[in-house]
């Protein structure tokens, strides 16, 4: 008994630590954001009211509690601006995720089928961009994409185009930025899933009369399903809320929810509405996570 006591204390700590982490860094901030979303904007410091304080006493606390309202949520739902920003974000994130998947799948497949002694080096190459700051890499894309940028200069000097392409400050530039930035997050889970596949399975399929095309769609892709799901989520979720890429590479007409949120927060100083926008976004992104959870449950145990 005495020997087990410290062990079980350790166990309790190990099990409790993630819960504590979630409480401190997720639930508590979420409660704060929720409270701000229920407040009203004010010209004050901080720019919303009511603000709770210990000096209020019990009645003061109840009064202020009564002053909280769901007005901001009503606003976010009723104003088309927010709805179209959400939809536009979802659309851009979906297109970017699809493009990332289409590029990452052949890359991951090639990595997984490469000779064993090359694979580690290829994985390192795939994550090599992370050694440079994300922001700097996005700035570098401005240099590449703008009208007098490198890409246009190259195409012009090759005579392939006569007038510079205007990619910069368009949705296309935003898509390029997202696909480029999130590609490693798609490659790693895909590579992991593909690398585990027994090459004998494809030989067996071929032996039973399947063409390489059929083998790919009936064996390789279904067995990579968990990797595809993980990669899609890792790209799609952050891409929906992406702010830096549309802000730096997008034009004024590129509507994304991350930028809308920024505008509410910093330009309009409307913290309650910004908070409500953030909470809707969170709710929106829980849906794909729950889908992922369900697919994980269906995955046969290995």
């Amino acid at each position: 008994m005495s020997a087990r006591a410290p062990l079980s204390a350790l166990r309790r700590f190990v099990l409790g630590a993630p819960a504590l982490w979630l409480l401190l860094f997720f639930l508590a901030p979420f409660a704060l954001v929720m409270k701000i979303a229920l407040s009203k904007p004010a010209i004050a410091q901080p720019p919303y009211e009511p603000t709770f304080s210990l000096a209020d006493g019990w009645h003061g606390f109840l009064d202020k509690l009564g002053a909280l309202s769901f007005d901001t949520f009503d606003l976010v739902i009723s104003d088309d601006l927010y709805l179209s920003a959400y939809l536009s974000s979802l659309r851009l994130a979906a297109i970017a995720t699809l493009l990332t998947l289409l590029i990452a799948f052949p890359l991951s497949l090639a990595m997984a089928r490469a000779p064993k002694h090359w694979r580690t080096a290829l994985v390192m190459l795939a994550i090599a961009p992370f050694w440079t700051s994300f922001l700097i890499r996005i700035y570098a894309w401005i240099m590449l994409l703008k009208e007098e940028g490198l890409i246009n200069k190259l195409l012009l000097s090759l005579g392939l185009i006569s007038t510079p392409l205007s990619i910069f400050a368009t949705e296309g530039a935003v898509l390029i930025g997202i696909v480029y930035s999130y590609l490693p997050f798609m490659i790693l889970p895909l590579y992991n899933a593909l690398e585990r596949q027994d090459p004998a399975l494809l030989e067996a399929a071929s032996d039973l009369g399947a063409t390489p095309f059929t083998s790919f769609w009936t064996i390789t892709v279904p067995l990579a399903r968990s990797g595809i799901f993980a990669g899609v989520l890792l790209v799609f979720i952050p891409a929906v809320g992406e702010f830096v890429i549309p802000d730096l590479l997008g034009g004024s007409d590129t509507l994304m929810i991350g930028r809308t949120l920024w505008n509410e927060f910093f330009d309009n100083r409307d913290w309650p509405t910004a908070s409500a926008v953030a909470i809707f976004l969170l709710v929106l992104l829980i849906a794909p996570l729950m889908l992922y959870e369900r697919q994980q449950m269906r995955e046969p145990a290995r």
């Binding site: 027994d198 004998a200 399975l201 030989e203 067996a204 399929a205 071929s206 032996d207 039973l208 009369g209 399947a210 063409t211 064996i219 279904p222 067995l223 399903r225 046969p300 290995r302």
Partner: peptide
């Protein structure tokens, strides 16, 4: 002739059953 066009079949040592 590639394997999928031969009327020969094979039982693999690992069996290579499709797990899904």
């Amino acid at each position: 002739l590639p394997p999928h066009l031969r009327s020969i079949n094979m039982m693999f040592q690992s069996y290579a059953l499709f797990p899904h």
